[in-house]
Design a protein around this nucleic acid. Structure first.
Lengths: 247, 247
DNA sequence: CCTACTTTGTGCGTACGTTCACAAAAGCCT
DNA sequence: AGGCTTTTGTGAACGTACGCACAAAGTAGG
């Protein structure tokens, strides 16, 4: 979900649906695994199983890219890897800057999964002079003041925000001003950005809350009561307190 | 997205739409901020702006919980905080176990955002004896063999998997066997789980790939060519190689 | 009490996403 | 060469989600 002001219901023109784009990386990963095992071709049924989706959905998704399968046989693994990579833009190099080198930024800097698919950590940045200069994952942490220069020289277009929430919007504005047009935000805040800038959000707390919702439905019957802040006053409409009297 | 075999298009019965559930934590966060600032009431317009959504959508979302607003006035902040918390199940305590204490697990253990909303890190687990016994965030890392006991004694129902990908499915199976019914998976793998277990997935690499896709559309015109694995052979159907000759 | 204003809650049209089901295409075997 | 099997690609039906726009319900002021 590209939050912010970048409302784009579905890609215009040639248009690959957003939902499909979100699944392509999934297919790509499954295909890479097959490729490493030396599997030459794969059917939509098998690939769908590996990616955990419905096979009709997989075929329709792939059909947006072109007609890359062979009826009666399936898809050529290597060829499909290439086509998806190309569509996602992974045939080129994407320098990434991580801003905010706390616990999470530190972990991401060391995270191998980044480098795998054309993403390269080009810079680690922090506003705190106590942190800048430290070496992490073989890389010196630089000060925020160097941002503009780094973006310019290394052609960075993707920024990852791992600052505390209160600093996120300000950092975001600076990134945008420096010319960054895609942001992955780990701070628990809604970022507002100008048109043309994409923001994606990763929020651990939200994921847990969604799990808790379903967990509650499973274990107990329904929402559990606690200390209730007094209703602003209004005749009862719905069971905010359990009905004790039988009808 | 509850991956795995737990297909549940929309909640049955009283049913709050899944898309709405995913937004409730967002509203809750915005409301908490208002609450801290001592704001007593808020209109759908204001709250929607703070959460970064359309106000009609916000009102519709809230209407699934009940009729908690006052026309001409807005919503009582405290009261709405309580109602959303209750619906999400945050009025109770959710012990969480983190499995796999590498870079990411380490960062999550220290992450404050966890504790905030009724989530409590109850245990840190790892299979590597070189790691177990270490103290992280004031908590001893315990061995996987203690899993069953911990789940039983601490009533843990949510597990967070931060192991390397190859270990994830096996760890997942063990969690499920031990009685855990909700899993937050950070490992880049599709987990398969029995019915009744919810899995949510957080995948940095996928988020970056989605950003790269849009970034490519913005900067260059369209996908960029690279070393092309030979087509399995089939008459040309679509521009996998750029047309050089003018029409 | 009556009028003017504000803001919620929702009916409705539209767009998007998912799944079924099947014709068309390709390979394989006799 | 012809028929049988496999598997893709997609038309069509269904369900979900979004956002406009407005009636209903409330507040405020005279």
């Amino acid at each position: 979900m590209a939050t912010g002001r970048t409302e784009r219901p579905t890609q215009r023109g040639r248009g690959i649906p957003e939902a499909t784009v979100a699944r392509l990386p999934l297919y790509l990963r499954a295909l890479s695994a097959l490729s490493e095992r030396g599997v030459p071709t794969v059917s939509s049924e098998e690939l769908a199983a590996a990616a955990g989706v419905n096979s009709a959905k997989l075929r329709k998704d792939l059909s947006y890219l072109g007609s890359y399968g062979t009826r009666g046989v399936g898809y050529d693994v290597e060829y499909l890897v290439y086509q998806i990579s190309r569509e996602l833009g992974l045939t080129q190099d994407w320098p990434v800057a991580i801003i905010g080198i706390g616990n999470l930024g530190h972990a991401l800097a060391n995270y191998g999964g980044f480098a795998s698919r054309g993403f390269r950590v080009a810079a680690l940045l922090d506003a705190d002079r106590a942190v800048t200069g430290q070496r992490i994952a073989g890389m010196a942490v630089r000060h925020m003041d160097d941002l503009e220069q780094i973006v310019r020289e290394d052609h960075v277009s993707i920024g990852v925000i791992t600052t505390p929430a209160p600093a996120a919007q300000e950092v975001c504005d600076r990134l945008v001003a420096a010319g960054i047009t895609s942001i992955l935000n780990f701070a628990p805040t809604v970022l507002s950005v100008p048109e043309g800038v994409d923001v994606r959000k990763v929020d651990l707390s939200i994921e847990l809350q969604i799990l808790a919702f379903h967990e509650q439905r499973k274990s107990g019957l329904d929402p559990v009561a606690g200390p209730v802040p007094g209703r602003p006053s209004k005749p009862g409409e719905r069971g905010d307190l359990p009905e004790v009297m039988p009808a």
